[in-house]
């Protein structure tokens, strides 16, 4: 296979309509850039084409509001993941004195599950984003990998994993953060992580104390309060984002906050539905919410991108 054909194969990352319009020109530029004896595309070019192709498929290159929305969603996803992690680590996971002797499984030190191993990486990711945004995505990637590794730890060791909905939620938030975090980042963008994390922890702890006072708090995942409480925190965040987005749309005809709300609704919405009551009752609802949010996002991207296509036209004279 020649270098040109290998580049053509990589260009399949772009949508067909884009390739028809731009493919040969892009291929020419790639070949112009390559030394005469090169037979394989450099790794940097390959990654660049795959990333830019996916951005084009998601219309991020043409839809500024969607691109800004993804960035906003990422800035909020990271403190959500870090805040939920700290809450679980400090409040939900520690084994209470009364429960310690009767556990039917091996505890992870003084914790119910091996979750703290992953929770620590989310706190680390928020701190890395604050200190050196350049490494923020890598730190979030580590958080995602460590969170998914909890499933393997559960399978091959005697330690228990946290519930699947929490693993799925942290993974989903991490994917959004990985997709949207970009450096360089301004100081306010960097500060969102620790401030948001702190605010979420504060609200969840306050609610926990209130529930303990009211006698309704049990603390462990599989009883209704922990999952519902975390889902409520995420849904409240979505509600605030939607409110900001609505005001922004009315006042400035700008949809970035609404896009951010829609993007975050994908990982948050179905988990929120799942944690409302017993799994038998809520699994169909959670599946419906997942399909609905993904469907609405895909349709919105398709509709928005179809009205903003920019044709490549040759001008007869300079304007």
């Amino acid at each position: 296979m020649s270098l040109a054909n290998r580049y053509r194969w990589l260009l399949r990352a772009y949508p067909r309509r884009y390739r028809e319009q731009r493919g040969e020109e892009l291929l020419s530029t790639l070949l112009d850039s390559a030394p005469a004896n090169r037979t394989w595309p450099p790794l940097a070019d390959a990654v660049d084409l795959l990333v830019c192709g996916m951005r084009e498929r998601l219309a991020l290159n043409r839809l500024r509001a969607l691109d800004r929305g993804l960035r906003l969603a990422a800035l909020i996803a990271l403190p959500l993941a870090a805040g939920l992690s700290v809450f679980c680590w400090l409040v939900v996971e520690p084994i209470t004195d009364s429960a310690g002797e009767d556990l039917p499984f091996t505890p992870f030190g003084s914790f119910y599950t091996c979750g703290p191993a992953a929770y620590a990486t989310w706190v680390l990711a928020a701190l890395v984003w604050l200190a050196t945004p350049r490494w923020g995505r890598a730190a979030v990637g580590l958080g995602v990998i460590t969170t998914l590794a909890l499933v393997a730890i559960d399978a091959v060791t005697e330690y228990q994993r946290p519930p699947a909905y929490l693993i799925a939620l942290l993974t989903g938030l991490g994917i959004v953060a990985c997709a949207g975090l970009r450096s360089p980042a301004s100081l306010p963008e960097r500060l969102v992580a620790p401030v948001g994390t702190g605010a979420l922890i504060g609200v969840l702890l306050l609610l926990t104390v209130l529930m303990e006072r009211l006698g309704g708090w049990s603390g462990f995942f599989y009883r209704w309060t922990a999952g519902e409480l975390m889902s409520a925190g995420c849904l409240a965040t979505l509600a605030v984002m939607f409110l900001i987005g609505s005001v922004q749309m009315v006042r400035r005809l700008e949809a970035s906050w609404l896009w951010a709300t829609l993007i975050l609704a994908v990982p948050v919405g179905w988990v929120a539905a799942y944690t409302q009551g017993g799994p038998q009752r809520t699994r169909p609802l959670a599946l419906f919410v997942l399909v609905a949010t993904v469907g609405v996002l895909v349709i919105a991207v398709k509709l928005a991108s179809s009205v903003r296509l920019v044709p490549v036209r040759t001008t007869s004279s300079r304007s």
Partner: peptide
């Protein structure tokens, strides 16, 4: 500039 990045910028 990598070509993919360049053409994204040119489109914008």
């Amino acid at each position: 500039l990598r070509p993919g990045t360049l053409y994204g910028a040119l489109d914008r």
